[in-house]
């Protein structure tokens, strides 16, 4: 029981790191809250579902397709929404409302196009039968999703720490004004980070049918909360801290589901409130409290 909860928690933790990663990247670079994050994840999930059903495309291939498509979608979307938003008096607050509006638009369009019913992809697509790890057996799809998430996180690490663009992106994260003053094209760097953030959400979405069960157009709201828990536990504005948050969240979720299953749904909410109240500056690394 204990080993199972721990190992499953680790796998889910890696997956939840990926779920939160895009949100944290966008927040870190632009200091705005993308409340439509969960809805981009949903779009990724539906993309994987339809491509699998129509042309039997393996979800792994969909990952690469999602990376390209959503980055390409994110860049114009950034120029459409964000520069105007950042000129407002309180961009962080207004971003919640703006992206809430966007999430409603996406959810409505997805309902119109896909219908409100639940969709799922059979788990055997990502490998057959249960796999034995340290004497515990897990569905192969879980392990495949966990490995893919780890690879995606590694990809973000390489992007941020091993490329010139990543170097500029980190400069914008540290201080937007100073980055601008040193001649960095802040909008271009931010637009790409925004696109990558959306693409990460969509990639997490591709694995959602295997990790989270069936998908519906309305799944976004709940995922937003979970993503928030993950990135708040880790470190808000620091994308790689998300991995820590994801693993803490995944392991505690599995423990709750194993030992107090009927109360497990309460965990993300309580965890989020407690962390915001108890360790707001320590864990987040920036002032979030007033007075």
């Amino acid at each position: 029981m204990l080993e199972y909860a721990l190992l499953a928690g680790l796998v889910f933790g890696l997956y939840f790191s990926l779920v939160g990663l895009g949100l944290n990247l966008v927040f870190g670079v632009m200091r705005i809250v993308n409340l439509a994050h969960g809805d981009f994840l949903m779009l990724g999930a539906f993309g994987a579902f339809w491509l699998f059903n129509l042309i039997h495309l393996n979800p792994i291939a969909t990952v690469f397709l999602a990376l390209i498509l959503f980055t390409a979608l994110g860049v114009p979307l950034y120029y459409l929404l964000v520069p105007r938003l950042l000129r407002a008096k309180d961009p962080e607050m207004l971003s919640i409302i703006l992206f809430f509006g966007l999430s409603q638009v996406i959810e409505a369009l997805a309902t119109i196009v896909f219908g409100p019913s639940e969709r799922s992809i059979p788990g055997r697509v990502l490998g057959s039968g249960p796999v034995q790890v340290l004497g515990q057996s897990f569905p192969a799809a879980w392990l495949a999703s966990g490995v893919a998430s780890a690879l995606a996180v590694l990809g973000v690490y390489l992007y941020l720490y091993r490329t010139r663009l990543g170097y500029l992106t980190r400069a914008v994260m540290v201080n937007r004004e100073e980055a601008l003053a040193t001649g960095i094209d802040v909008h271009r760097v931010s637009a790409i980070a925004f696109g990558v953030g959306l693409a990460l959400a969509a990639i997490a979405g591709v694995f959602a049918p295997f990790m989270l069960g069936s998908v519906t157009p309305a799944m976004g709201v709940d995922l937003n909360i979970q993503s928030f828990v993950v990135i708040v536990i880790g470190s808000l504005g620091n994308p790689l801290g998300t991995v820590l948050g994801g693993i803490v969240y995944g392991v505690s979720l599995m423990f709750m589901q194993t030992y107090f299953s009927s109360w497990a749904n309460l965990l993300p909410y309580v965890l989020l409130i407690l962390i915001l109240l108890v360790r707001p500056s320590g864990l987040l690394g920036r002032q979030v409290r007033r007075a």
């Binding site: 929404l81 938003l85 207004l94 703006l98 999430s103 409603q104 638009v105 309902t111």
Partner: peptide, 13 residues
């Protein structure tokens, strides 16, 4: 939902 989503976005901007 589509209309009010668009309304909210237009409103903020």
């Amino acid at each position: 939902q589509l209309i009010y989503g668009l309304l909210i976005m237009g409103l903020v901007l």
